[in-house]
């Protein structure tokens, strides 16, 4: 299990690197080498590290540990084909990590990041609609049952594309450089991660690489179903590249536009959900 975790960490970092490279190429820049994010994390971990004088020490460190813990847990939930409700729970709890990162340091930039993170809480609701729709269609939230259902009835991606689109938006809103990434926009330096440097930043990079890996992996498992692991990886890469296209071509939205877009997406999925329930 630990081997899979480490594999996921490095793959996730590599995916981040590919994401940056793809965005750079689309925008006509050479971009960094794809292993740049791995080097980045290592570099940060070698750097001198302390806790800012104004920070709430325990929270400042605990949030980093929590970030690592929840995404390792999420990975194991996928690995053991557990309940996607728990996955959804962990995804929501990630919000707490974002708040905690921003608020714990006392830095105004971090605080703005945290406030924006509260504002963009609407991005979590499409996932709820996704879970609800999947539950109504497959009758279970165990990943193993969902995979079995897809083996019998074909991939959910084709059965309910709007739900897949909702989850796609959810993943998009958590990607680096995404149009929805207002919490780490450049005008507030690095947003809620501004004050986490050195080892803390390295650990956060590890956690966020796990997050990217888990979200992509979950999308493939939930909407495509049980296929060989190599094929899963290829699909994850394709998914990531499509996300990179969106991130490269869309400007970052203002916080209010972000919330509007996410609320609209939620409303559309809710309408679809009601339609599914009525038909069923």
């Amino acid at each position: 299990m630990i081997d899979f975790l480490l594999f996921a960490v490095f793959t996730g970092l590599l995916l981040h690197g590919i994401h940056r490279k793809a965005i750079a190429r689309i925008q006509g820049r050479p971009g960094p080498p794809i292993w740049q994010e791995i080097l980045h994390s290592l570099k940060f971990s070698f750097k001198e590290t302390w806790i800012p004088a104004t920070a709430s020490e325990v929270l400042f460190v605990a949030v980093v540990l929590v970030a690592l813990g929840i995404w390792s847990a999420a990975l194991f939930i996928l690995l053991l084909e557990g309940s996607i409700l728990m996955l959804f729970g962990i995804y929501m709890l990630h919000k707490i990590v974002e708040h905690g990162l921003g608020l714990s340091s006392g830095s105004p930039y971090g605080k703005f990041g945290a406030i924006r993170s509260v504002i963009s809480a609407a991005s979590e609701i499409p996932l709820f609609a996704t879970i609800g729709a999947i539950y109504f269609v497959t009758g279970s939230l165990q990943l193993s049952d969902i995979i079995a259902y897809q083996a019998a009835n074909g991939p959910l991606l084709l059965l309910m594309p709007p739900v897949a689109a909702a989850m796609y938006i959810v993943i998009l809103s958590k990607m680096h450089y995404s149009p929805f990434a207002i919490i780490e926009a450049k005008e507030i330096v690095s947003g809620n991660r501004t004050e986490h440097f050195g080892v803390w930043r390295a650990a956060l990079d590890v956690a966020f690489s796990l997050k990217t890996f888990v979200l992509l992996y979950a999308f493939v498992l939930i909407f495509i179903g049980g296929i060989p692991f190599a094929a899963v990886l290829v699909l994850m890469l394709l998914l990531l590249l499509s996300l990179s296209f969106v991130c490269a071509l869309c400007p970052m939205l203002s916080p209010y536009d972000t919330v509007t877009m996410q609320s609209l997406a939620t409303a559309l999925v809710a309408v679809y959900l009601v339609a599914v329930v009525v038909i069923a």
Binding site: V58, L59, L103
Partner: peptide, 23 residues
């Protein structure tokens, strides 16, 4: 969401470990 609008302002209050409990 979408009733959380006032909460974003609440986040300005100092005392991160306590404000975090709200969320």
């Amino acid at each position: 969401a979408p009733f959380y609008v006032a909460k974003a302002e609440i986040t300005r209050a100092p005392g991160a470990p306590y404000v975090l409990i709200i969320h």
